Simulated assay, not measured.
Amino acid sequence: MRIFISTGEVSGDLQGSMLIAAMKRQAADLQLEIVALGGERMAEAGATILGDTSGIGSMGLIESLPYILPTLRVQRRAIAFLKQNPPDLVVLIDYMGPNLGIGTYMQKHLPQVPVVYYIAPQEWVWSVGLRNTTRIVGFTDKLLAIFPEEARYFSSNGAKVSWVGHPLVDRMQNAPSREAARAKLDITPEQTAIALLPASRHQELKYLLPVIFAAAQTIQAKLPEVHFWIPLSLEIYKQPIKEAIERYGLRATVVSGQQKEVFAAADFAITKSGTVNLELALLNVPQVVVYRLNPITVWIARKILKGSIPFASPPNLVVMRPIVPEFLQEQATPENITQAVMELLLNPERRQQTLTDYQQMRQCLGEVGVCDRAAQEILQMLPNK
């Protein structure tokens, strides 16, 4: 059985690799050939990678311009493959731009092949109209939702939906204990370890890294025992991040392939908005979330598209209330970040409230076994299954 999977960016590659491993567990009696748009993690899980999309992606209108041609190229490559080698099943994971094109192609030219959307684009959060939602519902035979609100939204708009829970619930099961992680990273008991997560996209090096590092510089002056830990999302960011550490004079260590250890060991995190916010929350790490876009993008979104979002970070979106501080655009200043960090670090009541809120959020993410449930739903869509 040939399954084609399409996803992009660092988080999509992670989710895709976890799904592939689960499908292989659930279909031990089947010979699965998995061809994909993805990255190194999916390749390690056993997929044949048609195009590496882990570094192709952006957030925002102006920010997406450099990626239009690479995205179109990889989308064309995928469609050419599908035309020559019709699969038994297509799985789309997030990555809205390319996946809308691939899904529409399947609907028009290969309607007999089932299409499953796993982790749908967050139309339920920031949609400015129903056009994309209608397209997704139109070409999707089954939608596997990871958030309860996502399931409600797509179901009310006509999709056949199953809520499976969030795959990070499975991933963080294997995280080391705080003691083991701190021992592995040689973090002493008296040291305050703060994780800095400035970038998983290239644009974030420009818009987020300076403000996060400037806040870290101030925090370091206030707390002599602090040390910063920066787990790399992509190796290509290593050099610019190391140069920035020197520029800002930070006591910081950059690590590769040890993200779980850093998260488990951390006392706190200053982080971009994204999947990492949930990983930190599942490990009970208090955090401050920061995001900035090109000012032109923000102006267009506010003035022309009339768009607004309730929250940017997944922990807040899950419960639809502010359980972690968010500083977006003009509010994302070193002063605001520093103030929030110091309050959460030094005020035991605020810290305890965060941990209590995390427990409530955890109840909305489903039980362990998310990837296996998703794999079972997907495999049931195969012909003759």
Score class of each variant (00 low, 15 high):
Glu225Gly: 03
Tyr95Ala: 07
Asn347Ala: 01
Gly55Lys: 07
Met361Phe: 08
Ala281Asp: 02
Ala340Thr: 06
Tyr117Lys: 00
Leu65His: 01
Ala221Ser: 06
Ser308Gly: 15
Ala45Tyr: 00
Leu280Pro: 08
Gln239Asn: 04
Val115Pro: 02
Gln84Thr: 13
Val113Glu: 00
Pro286Asn: 11
Lys222Met: 08
His227Gln: 14
Glu349Leu: 06
Phe268Gly: 07
Tyr207Trp: 13
Val368Cys: 05
Thr48Trp: 07
Gln353Trp: 03
Leu197Asn: 12
Ala265Asp: 00
Ile230Lys: 05
Leu197Asp: 12
Leu14Phe: 07
Phe228Cys: 07
Ile378Glu: 05
Pro314Cys: 03
Thr253Asp: 07
Gln359Ser: 08
Ile304Tyr: 10
Thr271Val: 08
Tyr207Ile: 01
Leu282Ala: 08
Leu197Ala: 14
Tyr291Asp: 06
Val137Ala: 11
Gly165Arg: 04
Arg135Val: 05
Leu61Phe: 05
Asn174Glu: 14
Arg171Met: 07
Leu345Asn: 11
Ile194Cys: 10
Gln191Met: 12
Ala221Met: 03
Thr140Cys: 07
Gln75Trp: 06
Leu110Lys: 01
Thr7Pro: 05
Val368Asp: 07
Arg73Gly: 08
Asp52Asn: 15
Ala244Ile: 00
Pro121Leu: 00
Pro240Trp: 09
Val324Gln: 14
Val74Lys: 08
Val211Ser: 11
Tyr67Ala: 03
Phe81Ile: 06
Ile300Tyr: 01
Glu279Met: 14
Pro295Asn: 10
Pro310Leu: 05
Leu328Asp: 08
Thr253Ile: 02
Ala175Cys: 04
Gly38Asp: 03
Leu32Ser: 03
Leu32Gln: 02
Gln217Cys: 14
Tyr118Phe: 13
Glu149His: 01
Val128Asp: 09
Ile20Glu: 06
Val368Ala: 13
Arg41Ser: 05
Gln84Val: 05
Pro224Tyr: 12
Pro87Trp: 13
Asn347Asp: 15
Asn336Arg: 15
Cys371Tyr: 02
Pro189Leu: 09
Pro383Leu: 01
Gln339Ile: 15
Phe147Val: 00
Val276Pro: 00
Met59Trp: 03
Ala375Asn: 14
Asn347His: 10
Ala78Val: 13
Asp357Phe: 07
Ala374Arg: 08
Met59Tyr: 04
Tyr105Gln: 03
Gly60Glu: 04
Val226Thr: 15
Val255Asp: 05
Asn294Lys: 08
Met59Leu: 09
Val262Pro: 11
Gly57His: 01
Ile93Pro: 12
Leu282Pro: 09
His227Asp: 09
Asn277Glu: 10
Thr48Ile: 12
Ile62Phe: 02
Gly8Met: 04
Glu343Gly: 02
Ala43Asn: 01
Gly57Glu: 02
Arg76Cys: 00
Pro325Leu: 00
Ile102Ser: 06
Pro322Tyr: 04
Asn284Lys: 08
Thr133Arg: 04
Ala252Ser: 13
Val10Phe: 11
Tyr117Val: 01
Asn277Ser: 15
Ile236Gln: 15
